[in-house]
Design a protein around this nucleic acid. Sequence first.
RNA 1: GCGCCCGUAGCUCAGAUGGAUAGAGUAUCAGAUUCCGAAUCUGAGGGUCGCAGGUUCGACUCCUGUCGGGCGCGCCA
Length: 549
Amino acid sequence: MSDFEHLIYDAVKEAVQTVYGIDAEGMLVVETPRDPKMGDYSTSIAMRLAKQLRKRPTEIAEPIAEHLRTHFSQAKSVEVANPGFINFRISESSLTEMIGKIIEAGDAYGTNDSGKGKKVLVEWVSANPTGELHCGHARNAAWGDGICRLMEASGYDVLREYYVNDAGNQIVMLGESLISRYFEYFGKEYPLPEDGYHAEDVKKIAFEIAEKDGDKWLEADPKERLAYFMQEGKSRELKKIDEDLKLYGVRIDSWIHETLFYENDRERINTVLKRMDDLGLTYEKDGALWFKSTEYGDDKDRVLKKSDGTLSYMTPDIANHVYKVERGYPKLIDLWGADHHSYVTRMKAALRALGYPEDTLTVDLIQMVRMVEDGKEVKMSKRTGNAITIRELCEDVGVDAARWFFVSKDVATHMDFDMKLARTKTNENPVYYCQYAYSRMHSILEKAEGFETAEDFDQLNDEKELLILKMLSDFPNHVGEAALMRKPNKIADYILSLVKVYHSYYNSCRVINAEDPKLTSQRLALVKATSITLKNALNLIGVSAPESM
RNA sequence: GCGCCCGUAGCUCAGAUGGAUAGAGUAUCAGAUUCCGAAUCUGAGGGUCGCAGGUUCGACUCCUGUCGGGCGCGCCA
């Protein structure tokens, strides 16, 4: 809640207690009315008390409002409206006090302690190191980074993690594909596996290895050669992924490799399997080891160890999730592509079966993205013929537009990414509308020299000035709420609405007026506070705040 | 067949825990600039919230059914 929401909450709670002798905790909600004409804040408490008190909501509301009028000094007005809302308007002086607080807080404005230092491990992207990141990953990456930024700003202790699937068959395929391309470089034949990787970037890596190492691997021991190409391929692919994420503005703190769980004769995995066995969660059938996941709500039991002795994908991943908890993170958030949704049940089942609390793991599914141009889906990059990569996207539409688009739409919805619109550098593109507002603010502030720094703000009484101040004061509240719900798109919405009011204000009120230095200095302070808030908000979704454009 | 997600204005999308007349952007139409950046602003039109029931003071929101679209139902990862 914002400062004002807290104040109102406490005041209303006290009023209800005094007037009716009822503890409103749990039923009291302070919200912002849709229509600002209603007031700055409102509460529906009278309607919620109606049943208990057997009276009409408006009759219940009036005595509460009357009490607040005399006891709640920050409110300019407290009014009752049908069908029983109590509406508040915050006094101008309380609002203008925010300016100083925001300027003082600077980059930290918006941070809040709603996370209470809770430790959270967010695992996302986690694309296999067998190729480049593409558009689907771009949505996942932008959203996950947004969630991390929001939680960090809200006082959570966040670890940003990427799980590298480097132990499965796909890495063998990568190695074999590279060897094939390596042979090709020297004009020799080596079969490219059918389900190998045919993409251009794999070929490029193979050629790089050929240029670095020469032909020494042509006649090398096949086992040694495969191991080398697997390792080399993986690390080069990972390096590219890391670079692309950095280009995209996404920071990863921790890279956990699947092979970690295979170290020391699968020590970590065996420990987990033993725990499951001890708990009676497994059985053998058809030469394979199974997990009784149906006992935990899954459709069917799942194989942990295949009859050939190798492990199924989920087994090291269970160890991975256990390892997260063991490192001191009781709260895990994973972002997966929606095509993995069936996997959610079994992973949760495994953790619950092992005795971890139900809410240990939260999985947010990222629905599919369709890249669209001129109303038609673009499946492939025109340049490469492969899926559009995150790098191409950054070069094509820009990082800011890409991140804005991905983050401004809830990941639960299937999204159309309009390439043409994202590329557009005009008013059609909301990201530039927002950035332009920041540039305008900066432009004004550059002209601020010669004006004193305002100490008080008694002349800021334009309707739009007060609305801006109200929105600014709500910012930390929006951040905390967006973090709690893991919805960065709420910040994009907030930015749009703030910027809209600012543009409107800019057109109706002149900030700099040499004939009225007092008003000018007060308005400059307001613009300063607004620019700080806007910049911080943009930063939360990974979009830059350009001083000129 | 079973499971998960989605269905809101012409288009792209918001609407957490049920609340006031369902909102933005864009597109369309009509206006605004001797002045801080017009990548701007002001206004207008545009909706059976897929459909049908139910729950209640009140449902876009919750429940049931149904239609449409996407995704998944491997000893693949």
